[in-house]
């Protein structure tokens, strides 16, 4: 019984303490500013246990802004690989989701999902703080789903 209590608490905690790492993958900085705005007193995402932790090795969520270009796609992949499971990825802004207005540029890969699997797409140019918070909450749902899938496949 105590073991299952602890396990339940850990499962609950996963949703209560999403730590973010935010990566500017060639953004115009418009979206970046909005990400930081989430931390300000107006939005105060720490209410939900959200911390911008700045280090993939500690993070549960990767927030990517910007178009992703041929130079920094390896960095994006690296950061993703350094995050421990379970983890989710959010592509922020028009650029992050699809490459946005830069899509046709010669150096642009065009979207985070070309490099790593993306769980939640948050549109906007720039993306609104409310939308980011909404995206994080949706991502928490994805996190729970992923856990359920993982434990189901572990049982099989």
């Amino acid at each position: 019984m105590p073991v299952s209590v602890i396990k339940d608490f850990i499962e609950k905690s996963r949703l209560k303490s999403p730590w973010l790492v935010h990566f500017d993958c060639g953004s115009c900085n418009g979206c970046d500013i909005e990400v930081l705005a989430c931390l300000t007193p107006l939005y105060d995402v720490e209410r939900f246990g959200i911390l911008n932790i700045g280090n993939p090795k500690h993070a549960d969520m990767l927030l990517v802004t910007g178009t992703v270009n041929h130079r920094n796609k390896k960095v994006l992949k690296n950061l993703y690989d350094q995050m421990p499971h379970p983890k989710v990825v959010l592509a922020l802004g028009a650029c992050g989701t699809s490459g946005g207005v830069f899509r046709e540029a010669y150096n642009v890969v065009g979207g985070v999902d070309k490099v790593i699997p993306v769980d939640v797409y948050v549109p906007g140019c720039a993306v609104k703080p409310e939308a980011i918070i909404d995206g994080v909450v949706t991502a928490l749902g994805r996190l729970a789903e992923k856990r359920a899938e993982a434990s189901a496949s572990a049982k099989e």
Binding site: N55, P56, K57, V75, L79, D81, Q82
Partner: peptide, 20 residues
Amino acid sequence: ARMTRPYLCGAPENVEGTYV
């Protein structure tokens, strides 16, 4: 455990002890 590389701001690493 799964081994990760030292954190160098995600800079890619082809040879050990270097970054690209």
